[in-house]
Design a protein around this nucleic acid. Sequence first.
DNA 1: GCCAACGTTGGC
DNA 2: GCCAACGTTGGC
Length: 163
Amino acid sequence: MSNRRFWLMKSEPDEFSIDDLIQSENQTTRWTGIRNYQARNFMRDEMKVGDGVLFYHSNAKPLAIVGSMYVSSEPYPDYLQFKPDSKYFDPKSTEENPRWMLVDVTFVQKFDPPVLREDLYDVQGLEDLMLLKKGSRLSIQPLTAREWEVIHELAGAVDIIKP
DNA sequence: GCCAACGTTGGC
DNA sequence: GCCAACGTTGGC
């Protein structure tokens, strides 16, 4: 698959973990709750069905890349922005002009063992990994093809293309 | 729990 | 459009 791009998406496992994804219907979930414009723009404007995505557990023990997924839908509105009882409700968003978009992602594989954050430092090929940059809070980050490959090698994993 | 590094808000 | 105040993220 040419023009396939690669991403890393963070989730706090207390909110939604890779095991939650595995147990989801069709092992697929809508990536709800993104309320950062840059992250939204990646999903809305740049992701394509079939893109590879690494699943990162943030605010967790251990901090780690725990598996991979692929983008499995076109972008569409995040329904939680319209639900007043949701913490992701946005009163300024309308059905006609939704502010927050998301994509579906589908499970590919779990890394066993996970690739620990602490083991990513000093790895050749990951010098520019956005995840490791100080103050990098972006919850969706682009990866180079090389970074994608190197992390798969660290995981002892084969890049399975499922879509 | 701390706090640095952001991103957003809103008065002006 | 500026920017101070505020809120959040997320590693440590």
